[in-house]
Amino acid sequence: MRTRPVARTLQYAAVVCYLVFLAFPLLWLLSSSLKSPREFAGITPSLLPKDVDLGNYSDALSEQGLVRGLMNSLQISIASTILVLVVSLPVAYALARFRSRLRPVTNGWILVSQVFPVILIVIPLFMILRPLHLTNTIPGVVIVYMVWSMPFALWMLQGYVAAVPRELEEAASVDGAGRLRTIVSIVMPLLRPGLIATAMFTFISAWNEFFFALVLLQDPELKTLPLVLARFVGAEGQVQFGPLAAASVLATVPSLVFFAFLQRRLTSGLLSGAVKG
């Protein structure tokens, strides 16, 4: 299709508008994180910091709660990601390969778990975890995240499993390999890209999660990064914008890095595959 020059110009103008809308906030956050406190006390803002000041980053990092929050978030996100994969892969395999009665039930559950407002779940969850001594603990949050990221992981994974040609497995089973061996030696390697994408996805959602953590974690030592950051903002007393912005940038880095990887897959194979399916 040929595009006329006028239309082309309009297209570029539109893209620029979109990008300003989407990227400018992030730029501002970055620049804020480099501004000195005095610059914040002034009343005319500028996009570029007058003099670049890394003090906010060292302030943010010296804030004890923040580093701990970072570690807690990492711990929780990694643990729940591993658990989710371990538990979901067999289920996803069964969902994609067998037409069992569990399949409609599982898909129903996946749907329902998306529709329900978390407020309805969090109160009973709290009551269940309390006698198990799992409220206000990291393992408690990990298993909650595991269960609540499963719907997504399952849905993603079963698509990937279905994309693995069945013939390969059949060939293996003709060769006498058992089901488990077939899964481990034939399906798993082919699933690697899918597993990685699912893992990153689970990681990001755990890293970003706020609500369950807010209710389940009360000890300041256990709080995740989003909770620590939210506490910074709220304080009626003084909001130190600089360190807050610096901390926010730091909190975004891990998911951005993961995302950079994930993005390639998202826009290439996964997308077209999923949509065609």
Binding site: W28, I204, N208, F210, L229, A230, A245, A251, T252, F259
Partner: peptide
């Protein structure tokens, strides 16, 4: 998409 909602709000 990659940013925690809390960070988005702060920003």
């Amino acid at each position: 998409w990659a940013m925690p909602p809390v960070v988005v709000a702060i920003m």
